[in-house]
Design a protein around this nucleic acid. Structure first.
Length: 503
RNA sequence: GGCCCGCUAGCUCAAUUGGCAGAGCAAUUGACUCUUAAUCAAUAGGUUGUAGGUUCGAUUCCUAUGCGGGUCACCA
């Protein structure tokens, strides 16, 4: 039995009264003829015509405001398409029915109302109610006191703002905060736009296993699980990479996947334990081609979703026009810190050079890790406008091909927008022997410093031995892209149900 | 995991030096036939996140703890 508040007890009594009257507070069916938006469109299209047609409609929606005025009552209802005013008058429905409405209907209830569409004396488009019935009774009041509509904008008063309640009870948040609903519409549009673009370029969308016996493709701690009947330990994937590249071996030249990755790591404004990733693999392309495609894709997505090549994030106007700024990692670090990473071939040497910098770091970290620290500290926050950083250290990129002139540097780039890493791509290793060595290198380096180890995926190497076309691969955090497009500063605002501790 | 901030009525927020825990909206009752944060009058609503401690007295001070937020660490 739930612990009901006083407000809820009042509503439970109303439910009991309805039942006494033989009225089902939760009827199985409603007789809706139009959505709110349909009725508005119909009325506006007809309005001003020489012969106006009376529009009769049965609407169903949630009551968002009620203004009883004696023998007349106004209310606003809202469905998924919009909001419209209801007009009840004792002359039409009788005083008993009007009293019945006032006594048994509350904010948050769903109501079915029949009547004709008209404009009130103040000009508001409304439904002149001739009949109504309960469509679904609410027990808990919505956590917003009242809404008003001003020039088409819905202004909420004393709205729900507490982040904890908003995330834990997202249904209530969505019900009362239309701008939150808008963010999630934008999210879906973003994913659709990515799909449209990739499809138009001839890429095939595929699905690969989420439950994996061996995880890989990224450096992250996995979630583990277990298959009871098979008595098999399984991991939730941390990336799609190794499965998608198996498909290159199988003869799919252009493939992509949009789906959920799971990483057992800290939670922050840009990290959620489960997040949406988009990866593509493109046979016969290298990282330069991937870079070009990335520019084209993001320009398309932004245009499709926002109708513009530019958008505002925080206080910045971000411009997605091609080409993006391109910064070689070594050059970028040299300019910002005066350190030429090529002059320091080991982690210890680089750490020594970094002592003059005002930043904290682990002096025992590997050279690659230190370079990544420098990137994160000195470059990443400055890349507000779209920027590619390219040519990364070999040791933090075990799946990327080396550059032709330096075995310690790989053909890899990351894309940054709004001071945040958005995507990561490289010319993928397709030499199975090289790949095996690189896996083994990682095994060594990881057992010494970091606590992560990556099981060697022998089946992946076997696949590669059958012959893998040269290819470029790409991964992008979709949540982060949505953060940018929706101008949201935390990933929780673009996840319907962000991860929270048990309450 | 470290540090900082927050947690008071259904929602948004007050509460002086430690001195009777308040307001607006929502709710209840009444008035009101074109309102729109309707208005007006009245009523009710609280284990101040939880558990301890100091004190004559704790929303306030102290300790522990839960949850949330920020930040740092972690996150090729």
């Amino acid at each position: 039995m739930a612990d009901y508040s006083n407000l809820e007890k009042v509503r439970l009594e109303k439910i009991a009264k309805l039942k006494e009257l033989g009225i089902d507070p939760y009827p199985r069916r409603v007789d809706k003829t139009h959505s709110v938006q349909e009725v508005i469109d119909l009325f506006l299209a007809d309005e001003g015509a020489s012969e106006e047609i009376e529009i009769q409609a049965v609407l169903v929606g949630r009551i968002r405001s009620v203004r009883p005025m004696g023998k007349v009552t106004f209310a606003h209802i809202e469905d998924g398409t919009g909001r419209i005013q209801l007009f009840f008058r004792a002359n039409d429905i009788g005083e008993e029915q009007l009293a019945f409405f006032k006594d048994h209907f509350d904010l948050g209830d769903f109501i079915q109302a029949s009547g004709k569409v008209f404009r009130t004396r103040t000009g508001e488009l409304s439904l002149w109610v001739s009949e109504f019935k309960m469509a679904a009774k609410a027990i808990t009041p919505l956590p917003a006191a009242k809404d008003q509509e001003v020039d088409g904008e819905i202004v909420s008063h004393a709205t729900l703002t507490d982040p904890e309640t908003r995330y834990r009870q997202r249904y209530a948040d969505l019900a009362v905060n239309p701008d939150v609903r808008e963010v999630f519409r934008l999210r879906t549009k973003t994913i659709r736009a990515i799909q449209h673009f990739m499809d138009s370029k001839g890429f095939l969308e595929v699905e690969t296993p989420i439950l994996q016996p061996i995880y890989g493709g990224a450096a992250a701690q996995p979630f583990t699980t277990h298959h009871n009947q098979l008595k098999q330990e399984l991991f939730l994937r941390i990336s799609f990479e190794l499965y998608l590249k198996r498909l290159l071996v199988g003869g799919f030249d252009k493939i992509y996947e949009i789906g959920r990755d799971f990483r057992n790591e800290g939670v922050s404004f840009k990290h959620n334990p489960e997040f949406t990733q988009m990866e593509f693999y493109w046979a016969y392309a290298d990282y330069w081609a991937v870079m070009d495609l990335t520019e084209e894709m993001l320009a398309f997505v932004v245009q499709e979703v926002l109708g513009s090549k530019t958008f505002v994030y925080k206080d910045h106007e971000i411009n997605l026009d091609k080409p993006w700024q391109r910064v070689e990692l070594r050059q970028g670090i040299l300019e910002k810190t005066g350190i030429d990473i090529n002059d320091h071939k080991t982690g210890a040497e680089l750490a020594k050079a970094m002592k003059s910098l005002a930043m904290e770091f682990n002096p025992k970290a590997s050279r690659g890790k230190l370079i990544d620290d420098l990137l994160g500290q000195y470059l990443e926050p400055t890349f507000i406008q779209p920027t590619f950083v390219y040519d990364y250290p070999r040791e933090i990129s075990p799946l990327a091909k080396t550059t032709p002139d330096d075995p310690n540097t790989v053909e890899r780039f990351e894309g940054f927008i709004g001071g945040m890493e958005l995507c990561n791509a490289f010319s993928e290793i397709n030499d199975p022997i090289d790949q095996e060595e690189r896996f083994l290198e990682m095994g060594r380096s990881y057992s010494s410093v970091e606590d992560e180890h990556h099981p060697l995926d022998e089946d992946y190497l076997r696949a590669m031995r059958y012959g893998m076309p040269p290819n470029g691969g790409f991964g992008m955090g979709v949540d982060r892209l949505v953060m940018l497009l929706a101008n949201q500063q935390t990933i929780r605002e673009v996840l319907l149900f962000p991860h929270l501790r048990d309450s």
